[in-house]
Computed example of a mutant assay.
Amino acid sequence: MIRNPNDIQEGAKKIRMLIAGYPGIGKSTLALSAPNPLHIDVDFGIDRIEPRYRKPYIQPQSYDEILGDLTPINLQDFDTLVFDTGGKLISLMSLWAIKKDPKYGQRDGSLSLKGYGFVGKEFVRLMDYCFYELQKNIVIVFHATEEKDGDNTRLRIKVEGQTKNNVWEPMDLGGFVEIYGNDRTIGFSNCERYFAKGTRGISGIRKIPALGPTSPNDFLTKLFAEYNAKATAEVEQNAVDQAAYEAAMVEGTAIIAGIVDADTANAAMPKYQAIKHALTSNKELGVLWNKKVKECGLFYDKVLKKYTPAPAAPGEEKGAE
């Protein structure tokens, strides 16, 4: 079914986010600042997080364990799933894929081309399952790696092969964490150094507040709230615009319906021009107006600035033979 984008009624929603950066820059702690998270510690790195910032966690040693743990009953007390790290998650997926079908692997234990394709699709399927069926926020952490591009150094997420394309695909937000002076920042806009992703007005470089002994670790909780506040504002504005559009269309079609000749067309013009348009009402009513004056055989005289009966074509004058 084809739908008008102004019909969107979705306000608050779950969010899928990717965080990337160098090891030791605080990606895991940042990821755990999301709302009510479960830490899926596939890197077994929870001991590197300060105790006061740790959250409930699992440490699956296989992809089958992850699938077994991610059930609605197990996750009913959590709002966010933090996969830490995505690279290790994909490694577990790769072993699982080769175990399912040897054609997905090569003799050295790495993935074949078919294997990369299969794992990429499984990654997207898992993200969709967590987002749509489990209805959880998703935060996935990746290490960053440097790639040389001529004289420039680029930052990229550390993941093998073509899988990185599948990783970015479902994300709503994606940012790289860096250090500038004494400040940690996260960038949500594409630049020469890295690819990133921003939506709903979340863009640019944002400073990550330093965490003190009594500081709440809530950066992503506040960011997600901002994201959803903008989503709610869009929905509310859509409702206002839709109501104004419908009022303009009712008013305009009634004015146009009253046109039967040049006099009524000229009398209708001030009322028609006073309509407060919204969305596509101006364009749509313009089509209806032009159609109506054409049906009535009217012509707009730019000198007189009013409608007159259209001049008869040569050979059509009254009494002509």
Rank of each mutant, 00 (worst) to 15 (best):
A247S: 10
A247W: 04
A196M: 13
R193C: 10
V240S: 10
T214I: 02
L304N: 04
K302F: 00
G252K: 12
T232M: 13
I275N: 04
Y245L: 14
V287F: 01
A225K: 11
G212N: 06
D183W: 11
F299N: 06
Q242P: 07
K294A: 01
R206M: 08
K230H: 08
H277S: 14
G187H: 15
K302P: 02
A239K: 15
R200P: 08
L279V: 09
E251P: 06
V303F: 03
R200V: 14
V260S: 05
K292L: 07
K291E: 09
V287E: 00
T221E: 14
E284W: 03
V260L: 08
L223K: 13
I202F: 03
K291F: 05
A239L: 14
R193D: 11
I205F: 08
I259C: 04
Q273G: 04
L279K: 12
I186R: 08
A233E: 13
G198M: 04
K291W: 01
E226Y: 03
T264H: 00
V260G: 05
A231I: 06
K305V: 01
Y300F: 09
A265W: 00
I256K: 05
A247F: 06
E284R: 02
L304C: 02
R184D: 05
P213G: 12
L279H: 11
V250A: 13
T232A: 15
E234P: 04
K207L: 08
I275T: 04
T221F: 12
Q273D: 09
F188N: 09
T199A: 12
A244D: 09
A231M: 06
S203W: 02
P209M: 06
A239C: 12
L298F: 02
R193P: 07
V260K: 09
R184K: 10
A262P: 00
E246G: 10
E226G: 03
K276Q: 09
A247M: 10
Q237L: 13
Y227A: 13
L285A: 08
N217G: 10
T308Y: 01
N290V: 05
S281Q: 05
F195G: 15
F224G: 07
E192R: 15
L279D: 09
I205P: 03
I275F: 01
K305P: 04
K207Q: 05
V303P: 00
A274Y: 03
E246L: 15
F219I: 10
L288M: 14
K294S: 03
S281N: 02
V250I: 12
Q242W: 15
T280S: 15
K306Q: 01
D261G: 01
T253C: 07
K302D: 00
A265G: 07
R206W: 11
I255T: 02
D241E: 12
G201T: 05
T232H: 09
L279M: 12
I205S: 07
M249N: 06
F299D: 04
R193W: 11
G204H: 00
E226A: 07
V250D: 11
R184M: 02
A257E: 08
H277E: 10
T308S: 04
C191M: 14
K271M: 01
N282M: 13
G201V: 08
A248S: 14
I205Q: 06
A262R: 00
T185P: 10
E284C: 03
N217C: 14
D218F: 04
I202C: 07
H277F: 15
Y227E: 11
